[in-house]
């Protein structure tokens, strides 16, 4: 790929850089217990909680496994489980 003058790049291109493999634990959402408050998504530093079929889901392409979502979930519906390598 040719370099761009002045190293100017298109916005939003970091979506091509997957940070999911930084993870050593993964959040698992108990959809039964989930109250759909959206706090997990709000508190994710990596914007890796997405809405799919009216449910919150972890985007494992990007989730780094920091565990903030699990800690902040008021319904305690998110558990961190060790990532299988």
């Amino acid at each position: 790929m040719k370099i761009t003058p002045g190293a100017v790049v298109k916005g939003g291109t970091s979506l091509h850089y997957k940070t999911g493999d930084w993870r050593d634990q993964r959040p698992v959402i108990d959809q039964e217990a989930c109250q759909k408050c959206g706090i997990c998504r709000d508190v994710c530093p990596d914007d890796s909680i997405k809405v799919k079929d009216e449910q919150y889901e972890i985007d494992t392409d990007f989730c780094k496994g920091c565990g903030i979502c699990a800690h902040e979930c008021p319904a305690q519906a998110i558990k961190m489980v060790p990532e299988e390598k």
């Binding site: 970091s14 997957k18 930084w22 920091c66």
Partner: peptide, 11 residues
């Protein structure tokens, strides 16, 4: 401000 940035865990 989308995913794929390289901030530390829990930044």
């Amino acid at each position: 401000f989308v995913s794929g940035h390289r901030a530390c865990h829990g930044c």
